[in-house]
């Protein structure tokens, strides 16, 4: 019979011990919304599943000087956090529209990023927030900037003896706006044709851009940053014309594939259109926040 053993460690140390014991014959499981489906489809056949659901030190949202999110925090907990919605709306935009309520009650942000689908909805917002990924093994800890985290479809820098522990995000400077847009055919229960996150920080006038981040999914083998478009915006006045140009540059940085959800030219074209649109939403949010703060 095709089966697996199921372990429920209650602390990270115990999870690492089990990982070392079973090595590549085991698989970590958080919410299981990818793992259980992959197991049913016979894509994976581990002899042991090591569950991260019962480890309190992986399940938290902490907001002090910076934001820290435990890897096994569910999308639903993030969606319902008032702090996430008000201070990190790009994360809210993404996690509140992953699958259904049922999926979000199980699925975790760590699972989403470690599964490393090119379409992972939480990736673009985490990219524009310059997230640090904190990884542990029995040899110690390391922290990797998220733009170096993804290695290919389904591949990350995480080694078989490692667990992603948390994500660290610095509080964005004043006069910052951010948003994520998931481009889909249906408004719910669909994977994105492409996903676009934009973060813009301005000086006091809310015109000149002092920081720009653009994160895109489904336009390359991994979620990417559109660095040339970011460079173009930096120091520039942000308006329809400059965002138009940024969209064109971002589109030229994409190397999308044709899949059942969309063809390559359509994805590139929509990247151009959506970078501008999401840039405008971010600008609007920045001016809204600066009014609230003053």
């Amino acid at each position: 019979m095709r089966t697996f053993d199921y372990f429920k460690p209650v602390c990270v140390e115990e999870a690492l011990f089990l990982l070392n014991k079973f090595a590549d014959k085991s698989k970590l499981v958080a919410g299981g919304t990818d793992v259980m489906v992959q197991w049913k489809k016979r894509i994976i056949s581990p002899v042991a599943l090591i569950s991260l659901r019962n480890i309190p030190e992986l399940n938290f949202i902490r907001m002090n000087d910076c934001l820290e999110i435990g890897s096994a925090t569910t999308h639903r907990s993030l969606e319902l956090s008032a702090d996430i919605k008000s201070k990190f709306p790009a994360i809210y935009d993404a996690v509140s529209n992953i699958g259904s309520v049922q999926v979000r009650n199980s699925a975790t942000i760590g699972g989403n990023l470690c599964n490393a689908a090119p379409s992972a909805d939480s990736a673009p917002p985490m990219l524009v927030l310059d997230t640090g990924v904190n990884i542990v093994s029995s040899d110690g800890q390391r922290s990797i900037p998220i733009d170096q985290f993804f290695k290919g479809p389904g591949k990350t820098v995480v080694q078989p003896n490692e667990v992603v522990k948390s994500f660290s995000i610095a509080t964005p400077p004043e006069n910052t706006g951010m948003a994520y847009w998931k481009h889909t055919r249906r408004s719910a229960m669909d994977l994105p044709i492409l996903g676009v996150a934009v973060l813009l920080s301005f000086d006091e006038d809310i015109k000149t851009c002092v920081k720009a981040r653009i994160g895109l999914s489904v336009v390359a083998p991994t979620p990417i940053r559109a660095r040339k478009a970011e460079e173009f915006l930096l120091g520039n006045v942000v308006n329809e014309a400059s965002l138009d140009e940024a969209g064109k540059i971002a589109a030229s940085e994409c190397s999308p594939r044709t899949t059942i959800r969309g063809s390559d030219w359509y994805r590139r074209e929509m990247a151009r259109v959506l970078v501008k649109r999401v840039g405008l939403i971010s600008t609007e949010r920045a001016s809204h926040f600066s009014k609230l703060e003053s």
Binding site: Y6, G32, M36, S51, R76, N105
Partner: peptide, 12 residues
């Protein structure tokens, strides 16, 4: 909390 029981591991 509502969940999809078809992919919810029984051991949990």
């Amino acid at each position: 909390l509502p969940i999809n029981s078809c992919i919810y591991p029984i051991m949990e």
